[in-house]
Computed example of a mutant assay.
Amino acid sequence: MKGFDFDFLKVTPIAILDILFVAILIYYVYNLIKNTLAVNLLLGMFIILVIQFAVDALHMELLSAIINKFMSVGIIALIVIFQPEIRRFLLLIGKNTFLQKNKAWWGYLFGSKNIERDNLARIKPVIDACKSMKKSRTGALIVFVKFYDDQLFANSCEVIDSKISKRLLESIFQKNSPLHDGAVVIAENKIKSASCILPLTDNDKLPPQFGLRHRAGIGVSENTDAVAVIVSEETGEIAYAKQGRVRMNVSFGELEKLLNKDF
């Protein structure tokens, strides 16, 4: 028909690719902010935008000037407010790249044929220690990190830098041990430190039965690429925290698969 331009209805491969990338981006952002305080922050920002449109429409010059000044520093404010989420987003992208997902195959091609066996040998002492602590109802928090952050861990921990050992883990978390409070951090195939004070999660939707160990394990997984294994002192049950989410009542078979996959 004359007078009408239907070019915007044309679907091109580039347009489909564009929509696909936007959908993936929205999915990642949703996964990052789901069940976190970032949802409330975004809601607050949306309300401010609605108020801004309203005061502009009503010609409230004073209030409009105040809100416009606030919005003028919006980008900097977003970076400051959402710094943990931005960090997690970049870590999530890095962990899901092709090379990361296929590093086992690359290792195989370059001669590391025993990666799974080596991983199991490193993980087995941790699983054995968890079995023992589950029986004795000994509370424990074991954090696995790929890159040891001296500023985050060493300043609030007792440095150990020892081989991963079932007996060492059990002795650290014994109730009479001076190091039993706090977390053990494992990195670079070693027990790097113990008695670590970790940031607690701000998530207010967690079950009330979650104690400091669970909240610390979830908190460190929110702000870093770490995963945390938590042994409940009350029930002996095993929990696994990753990316701010916690998986309860994990069996030892599941724990082995999760640790082997993530580390």
Rank of each mutant, 00 (worst) to 15 (best):
residue 3 G to I: 02
residue 7 D to P: 08
residue 9 L to C: 08
residue 9 L to A: 07
residue 15 A to C: 06
residue 16 I to D: 01
residue 20 L to A: 14
residue 23 A to M: 15
residue 36 T to M: 06
residue 38 A to P: 00
residue 39 V to Y: 05
residue 42 L to K: 02
residue 53 F to Q: 12
residue 55 V to A: 02
residue 62 L to S: 08
residue 63 L to R: 04
residue 64 S to G: 09
residue 69 K to G: 07
residue 73 V to A: 11
residue 79 I to N: 04
residue 80 V to I: 14
residue 88 R to N: 11
residue 90 L to Y: 13
residue 94 G to H: 15
residue 100 Q to D: 12
residue 100 Q to F: 14
residue 108 Y to S: 12
residue 108 Y to L: 14
residue 110 F to S: 13
residue 116 E to L: 07
residue 116 E to S: 08
residue 117 R to D: 03
residue 120 L to Q: 09
residue 123 I to Q: 03
residue 123 I to K: 02
residue 130 C to I: 12
residue 131 K to V: 03
residue 134 K to R: 10
residue 140 A to Q: 00
residue 148 Y to N: 07
residue 151 Q to G: 12
residue 151 Q to N: 10
residue 168 L to K: 10
residue 169 L to M: 04
residue 171 S to L: 12
residue 171 S to H: 14
residue 177 S to L: 01
residue 190 K to L: 04
residue 191 I to F: 05
residue 192 K to L: 10
residue 193 S to D: 08
residue 194 A to E: 01
residue 203 N to Q: 11
residue 208 P to K: 08
residue 208 P to Q: 05
residue 209 Q to K: 11
residue 213 R to A: 09
residue 218 I to P: 02
residue 222 E to I: 00
residue 225 D to F: 09
residue 228 A to N: 05
residue 231 V to T: 02
residue 232 S to L: 11
residue 232 S to Q: 13
residue 233 E to I: 15
residue 233 E to M: 13
residue 236 G to L: 02
residue 247 R to G: 07
residue 247 R to Y: 06
residue 251 S to H: 04
